[in-house]
C-alpha cells in the first residue's frame, strides 16, 4: 500500500475532527499552549504548527473570540468560543454523532 495515500487520507479524516475537538475544548478559555496540552492529556495530539494557525483561522471565521491578558508575568492570547461558535459547535456535534452512530453500525 502507498504510505503517501494513507497519510493523505488520514489527514483528511483528522482535519474536521480536530476542528471539532478544538471548538469543544474552547468552551473553556485557553491560550495556545494550554489548549495543546489539554488536548494532549485527553489523548489528542496536535502539532503546534497546525493548532496555532488554526486558532487564528477560527477566529477570523468568528467562531472564536480572543483577548490579550497577562498571566504568570507574560502577555498571552486567550481564546474561547464565540456565540456563533457555540451554535456551530452544537450543529457540528449533532452531525458528528449521527455520522459516528452510522459508522459504528457499518463497522
Amino acid at each position: 500500500m502507498d504510505p503517501a495515500l494513507f497519510d493523505s487520507l488520514r489527514l483528511e479524516l483528522r482535519r474536521g475532527n480536530l476542528i471539532l475537538a478544538v471548538l469543544a475544548q474552547l468552551r473553556a478559555e485557553h491560550y495556545g499552549y494550554t489548549l495543546r496540552t489539554a488536548l494532549s492529556d485527553l489523548g489528542l495530539e496536535i502539532d503546534e504548527g497546525t493548532l496555532y494557525p488554526l486558532l487564528r483561522r477560527l477566529e477570523t471565521q468568528e467562531l472564536l473570540t480572543s483577548e490579550w491578558r497577562e498571566e504568570g508575568g507574560r502577555r498571552k492570547r486567550f481564546y474561547k468560543l464565540s456565540p456563533d461558535g457555540k451554535q456551530i459547535l452544537k450543529q457540528l456535534l449533532a452531525e458528528w454523532k449521527t455520522l459516528n452512530q452510522s459508522l459504528t453500525r457499518i463497522l
Partner: peptide, 14 residues
C-alpha cells in the same frame, strides 16, 4: 510573533 512567543516560552518553562 507575540502569541507564538508566549506559547513557546510556556512550553520551555514546562
Amino acid at each position: 510573533v507575540d502569541e507564538l512567543s508566549a506559547n513557546l516560552r510556556s512550553e520551555a518553562e514546562g
